[in-house]
Every structure is written in C-alpha cells, then in structure tokens.
Nucleic acid binder design. Structure first.
Lengths: 211, 211
DNA sequence: AATGGAATTAATGTATACAATTATACATCT
DNA sequence: AGATGTATAATTGTATACATTAATTCCATT
C-alpha cells in the first residue's frame, strides 16, 4: 500500500480546490488567510501556500482584500470544450495505444461505478464516477504532459457537469458513450477511441451549454 | 505606465522558472530553500512559495533532499508538439477572429524584432522574440483558458527551440512562417491562420526532433 | 570487515512575530 | 453636501523560530 502522507498545505489545497470548483464558495467571495486558518485550526502558513497555488491555476486571484474566488463564465466553458474536443480525442487514442492491464481494470471499475450510480439516479455519485473515468483515461496515455494539461481543464467544469446530470437522459447516454470508449480502448482500437471521444465531448458540450 | 509591483516570491518564481527552463540549472539538480534564500539574500518564505508553485507546474519536484529539477524528455517534447499542433492552430484562428488593433501592433512589433535578430544571427534574441510572438498571439485569442493552457506548454521547450535556431536555415524559414501567420491574422482570415499555424508547428517539431 | 543502530545533521513543514500596504471610517474644511 | 486628509483597522508579505522527518555518519558489536 502506498499511503502517501500529505502535508497540511496539500490537504488544504485539495479541499479548497474541490470546494471552490463544486460551488461551496461562490464567485467573487473573499477568502482571507486568517479566517481560513482559524476555521481549519492551523497557522496561516499552509493556508497561504494552498492559496498561492490556487492563484497559480487561476482558481483564485490574490488581492489586498483576500483571495477572490474566480468564476467560470459560459465562454470559459466553451473554450474548455473546444480545447478538449481537439486533445482529449488524442488522449483516447494514446490510451488505446498505451493501456496496461491494471489501468484498464481501473477504467472498467469506474465505468461500473458510473453505471451503479446512474441506475440509482445518484447525480453526485454519477458525476464523481464520470470525473474518475476521465482522469483514469488520462493516466492510461502514460503522458505526464497530457495528464497535466487535461486534468485541470476537466476539473474546472465539475460543477456544470453535475447540473447536466439532472437530465436523466444525459446520464444514460453518457454512460453508453463511456462504455463505447472503454471497449475501443480495451480492444486497442485507437482510431475508434479517438472518434468516439470526439462525439462524446461534443455531446457533453451540448448538454451543458444547450447549443 | 503600469509598473506592477511584483512580490519577492513572484520575482523568484519568474527567475527560477526561467533559469530552469533555459538550462541554468540542470536535470536532477537539487535546489534547497536555505541555499537559495542565502544566495538571493531573502528569507526562506518567498523562496518556498516560489518552489511550491514550480512544483505545482511540475517544473521541480519537492523531495526531502530539496526541490529536484525535473528534466524534459524527448517524449515530453513530442507530446507537447502533438498537443500544440491541435490547439495552437485553433488559437491562431481565434486570434484572427478576435484581434484588436493594439494587440496586432504588438504582434507586428515582435515579428519585426525577430527579423532584426535573425538578420544579426543572434540566436538568443531570435528565440526570445519567437517566444514573445507566440505569447502575444495567445493574448489575441482573448481566451484566458487558451492562454493558461498554451503558455506553460510553450515555455517548457524554450531551451530546445534555442538549439534549433543554430541552424540558420530554420531561423529564416520560421520567420517566414510567422510572417504568414501574422498577415492572415491581420487580414482576419481565421481559416488561413489556422492552417499556416499547423504547418508551422509541424515544421518546428521536425526541426527540434529531427524526425 | 560487515552489520545494526543510535547520534547527528540537514532538510522540509508549520507556527508565530513583525513589516508594509491597502482599505475603511471619521473628522475637518470648503 | 462633498471633498480631503488622517487615524485606525484589516490584510497580505516577509522573516524568524520551532517541530518533524529523512538522510548520513559513525561507532559498537558480531
């Protein structure tokens, strides 16, 4: 087992990133180092490190009044999907070409998990499993560059994807699309995985943006 | 005049990023907070903030022995070019569609600067102007997502691009390619800018990787 | 000489203290 | 009333002190 010990700063970074991207904190909200450190029961130092790393990723913006939560506009979502359309399809192809047995098993596990939550009509569970599926696929590319590039883009829209899963139809079709992608990857068919991913991204985009 | 005051941490981040990506520090070299703070004449705090942000971008890796400088493999370069091929062409199209007068002037200025250095056979100057041209083009897209995504990818290979400019032929053809892209953008011809950028990226890739 | 393990060292991680800057409130002047 | 200046407060930025952990050294034991 590889239980890596995370520093307090790392834990706070993960927690704040999740809370901001899922909407616990809202757009333009000001997070001050002192308040956060008091709430969390730690000193300002690790809080400050977490915030400066969030600022690095443009998730917050440091100001003299506190770290301002950056919102995500509709145009941001459009741009993210335009970029993902072009490179996540490549990632699917690379995954098909480089997949190892263990990674494939993990991808399958997340697919099954998504099916489980979709049948239970659990939107949060479905959304989490969806996120896991994509991140696992990135890992299959064996490309740190791809993982670093797509990971943040995908995480940024988790809140909006969540909303789209309230359309029950979307949850079911998304599951089917994932299944097709998984099978193409498992079969080592890069071309097919690439094309199916293109279709999937375009449908997800339409489901979220409605156009 | 907009002389923005940068914090010490920001300055150190910029300096270290530049020095690592241009090869002042080499692969696997260990940077310790204490030594850096003594060398730079500041406390560990801003040094530490800079390093943790560099780790966030996978430019260094934090270990118990210091911040280890991460190297860039040939495969990393291949992956970066594969991604840029697909989205920097989109960026060129977006730049053509969203360019404003001031941004175009800046792009032209950097093009002229590249010409100046190319004629003088100044590889470092040419490389710097090349980098500036691409970053200015990203800015023209008016898309924070595009800027955030492409910026780091482009900066990562500055050292290797520098080497490719030692082939005088490459410097001249690159200049010509940039000129074509600039003119397509200035003319508002998105399709052409997109196609010319694809060609440019592919040629640059070949020039660096030799295959 | 090889091995094991305590002592030491060197590094990061965290807390606190201090400095500098910016925002706010309030009084004063016109 | 509105502008302006000044004191106060709130917040970030930096330095330093302390805690913890991992590597290294070195000595004792076999």
């Amino acid at each position: 087992m590889n239980h890596k010990m995370l520093s307090i700063a790392d834990q706070i970074f993960n927690e704040l990133e999740h809370d901001i991207l899922t909407g616990v904190y809202e757009h333009d909200e000001l997070l001050t180092e002192l308040k956060l450190s008091e709430t969390l029961g730690v000193s300002r130092t690790p809080v400050r490190e977490a915030l400066s790393r969030l600022a690095q990723e443009h998730i917050v913006e440091m100001t003299s009044k506190g770290a301002r939560v950056m919102g995500i506009t509709e145009k941001d979502i459009e741009d993210i999907y335009a970029i993902r359309y072009r490179i996540e399809s490549l990632a699917a192809k690379m995954a098909a070409e480089n997949a190892d047995e263990q990674g494939l098993k993990e991808l399958k596990r997340l697919l099954d998990l998504q099916e489980f939550y979709t049948e239970k009509d659990d939107h949060d569970g479905t959304n989490a499993a969806d996120s896991g599926f994509h991140q696992a696929l990135y890992a299959l590319t064996k490309s740190p560059t791809m993982i670093q590039t797509l990971g943040p883009l995908h995480r940024r829209i988790v809140k909006y994807r969540r909303v789209s899963y309230e359309t029950p139809d979307r949850a079911i079709t998304s599951l089917g699309e994932h299944r097709g992608i998984y099978e193409a990857i498992a079969a080592g068919d890069g071309e097919k995985a690439e094309e199916l991913m293109r279709v999937h991204i375009e449908k997800a985009r339409k489901s979220i943006l409605g156009k």
